[in-house]
Design a protein around this nucleic acid. Structure first.
Lengths: 203, 203
DNA sequence: TGTGAGACTGGAACGGCGTTCCATTCATTT
DNA sequence: AAATGAATGGAACGCCGTTCCAGTCTCACA
């Protein structure tokens, strides 16, 4: 598991092959199949490891809103330090790591006093938002892996956006300059707060 | 493009290989590379086709909120009838189809009168939620492809959730019975409405 | 009318992937 | 000392995306 996570961190999701992992462990690729059914299970197990490590403790002492923010920050930090986790979470929403996030969110939604009918929608809305943004960060960090740092890379994307027809894409033009200077963490938490505010109106 | 979409609809994303597409078109796999740079571009083009077809017309006559709902419903219907689109959108958030969705959402966010600083976060929150739920539906429909219909398949997942330790997963237990009877479309729109309500408070 | 050039084809070949298979080693129990 | 099941490791299989390239087809221009 350590070896797999290390490869994923250094080489990205494409770098984790059974051959590469076997090489790192000085064994054959077949041996790995004794411990793991297939590649999906391998990736899910690695994701579980990371998500569990970033799950906040002592959430009980916080207000429900603060607890949800803490949970979200945990997921964000997990993705931020292991970008492949983002793609894995959003690409496989039925794995255990996602279930555990949903459990954490749901408990706090109940604590917020949302009536029973709205709980499922409120919790899954938070979850879906987190998975959606997770996917975006995952692709971004993968796309800009080699060489160039984040800011110059995003500047390049913004420049491409500016090349589009301004008549047909006024909003994109308006927002493109923000792209290189925006803070991912702030964007993530702003979305969470937006949904929390919406949930609050339905209480 | 027609052949590619037809294969994707019938065999799923894994079924679209250059060999399969070449076979369907009675040509060689090399010929396809004259028209398309690689597989990503092929999938992106197919996704663009579908998303464009489901983009609502005459959004100008609606209120901003109604326009956003119409846009969201278009995306939902596109995924509902072509499940592979969900995975493609969330797995590749920098493709043109996603940009066009963001443009549509952003224009309406501006029309809502959100101050300039909040526009980017509001529009991307809506987008991220849509992509996140899109990924979930995509995996669900892929996972339950063979044989069993949606309800019995979701019943099986719910049963698995009920096997988990109730002490550690109270919310999952509470919500599992809803899984087989919930309406995807309603869940999708409930999330949109939640975010819209949150955006409204920041106006 | 002939011809050359560029658009386009189709199939072979390459390297790498996930997965399977199985003879073998190893550790533990009897 | 023998037996047994857990675990290994490397060869082999079939399929994938991609590359390569000798051909064919089309059509503007000499």
């Amino acid at each position: 598991m350590q070896a797999a996570i290390s490869i994923l961190d250094n080489e990205g999701a494409a770098g984790l092959t059974f051959r590469a992992l076997a090489g790192r462990l000085k064994t054959g690729s077949g041996a790995i199949y004794w411990h793991v059914a297939d590649k999906d299970e391998l990736l899910a197990a690695a994701t579980d490891h990371v998500i569990a490590k970033f799950e906040p403790q002592d959430v009980g002492r916080l207000s429900p809103q603060e607890a949800i923010r803490a949970l979200a920050l945990g997921v964000f930090d997990a993705i931020d330090s292991h970008p492949w986790v983002g793609a894995q979470l959003s690409g496989n929403p039925f794995q255990y790591a996602v279930l555990r996030i949903l459990e954490g969110l749901g408990t706090q939604v109940v604590a917020l006093g949302i009536p029973e009918k709205g709980r499922f929608n409120a919790a899954t809305a938070l979850l879906s938002f987190m998975l959606g943004l997770a996917a975006q960060y995952a692709v971004a960090s993968h796309h800009f892996r080699d060489g160039s740092d984040r800011t110059t890379a995003l500047r390049a994307v913004a420049a491409k956006w500016m090349e589009l027809d301004p008549e047909q894409h006024p909003f994109i033009h308006q927002v493109a300059p923000l792209l290189p200077v925006h803070d991912d963490r702030e964007q993530f938490m702003a979305g969470i707060d937006l949904i929390l505010a919406g949930i609050d109106t339905s209480r």
